[in-house]
Nucleic acid binder design. Structure first.
Lengths: 151, 151
DNA sequence: GCGAGTTAGTCTGATTTCTGGACTCACTGT
DNA sequence: ACAGTGAGTCCAGAAATCAGACTAACTCGC
């Protein structure tokens, strides 16, 4: 009788990457966060700088606020007006933005170099590097492995 | 007559983050890359581990191959069969995956902790940290500013 | 006090994309 | 001979995206 199913097995991986992408795995979502890092906190300004459809951006901002990445703050009573600010969780997305930026700088920059350079407070132009917090060494594709494997 | 337009101005920012997201700013694309990092290079296995619709995954893999992030390699002649391997550009997405993973580990892990721990070759569990390549200091939201500002 | 501008959205209807499931085709293994 | 694997494609309905027009509540300059 029950010869149905049997294959399939292996449900999708529980994975922090997947969970995170569920929230910000979308061009407009991450660009909205980028804009707030750039100090543009208002809807219209974001629409202009990002180039997203107003509709879509409004939806994304709702998601981001719901996820606790941004908070919506009223700065004017009477014509009610709002700004979006980063929460701590939002600020912690900075590394994600920086690694994406570095990849684009490396592989997608045109002849005249990256469109934007950041300067770190140490005085040097910022090149974002991912290191192991414990030993300080850069992490490359082959230098990390699943711990304890399956279970 | 031409009272149309006038506002609008400010075209969307040229930005490495935006360009990169144009390629991988999609849940399934990045999860496909994650799977290849996990060593799963074949279509069916990816479908199972990612949980993506076969159609969508097929489309994403085409994009990724076209973008030079993956390459498609035939491992069987007769029933023609293919595997996806990372190019150098693909391997350089590892930092992006790691920062997304760290964010999810921090903000989305359930009671029993992150679903997957990596061990760095130094022996410690890996916690990915983004530092300034020049000075080695961690980069936080406020510690970097646009260089030379506008123009 | 009037028209123009600003701000934060919402509404609209026409695409476009996504989705799960069935299907194909060429094998292999039992 | 029959089930299974692997890499997709095909389908039709559901959902999301898009550009642009619209709204509503002001403020500003003249």
């Amino acid at each position: 009788m029950l010869r149905v199913m049997a294959s399939l097995s292996v449900q999708p991986r529980a994975c922090s990457v997947a969970r995170t992408l569920e929230l910000v795995g979308d061009k407009w979502a991450l660009l909205a966060v980028r804009e707030v890092f750039h100090g543009n906190r208002r809807f219209d300004e974001m629409v202009r700088r990002i180039g997203a459809p107003r509709d879509t951006l409004a939806a994304r901002l709702r998601t981001l606020v719901g996820a606790g990445i941004l908070k919506r703050h009223q700065y004017s009573e009477h014509p009610p007006r709002f700004e979006y600010h980063l929460t701590e969780a939002g600020r912690d997305l900075y590394p994600v933005i920086l690694t994406l930026m570095r990849w684009g700088d490396t592989y997608l920059a045109g002849a005249d170099g990256p469109p934007l350079t950041l300067r770190h407070q140490c005085g040097h132009p910022l090149t974002a590097q991912v290191v192991c917090e414990a030993c300080g060494e850069p992490v490359t594709a082959g230098s990390a492995k699943p711990a304890t494997a399956a279970r």
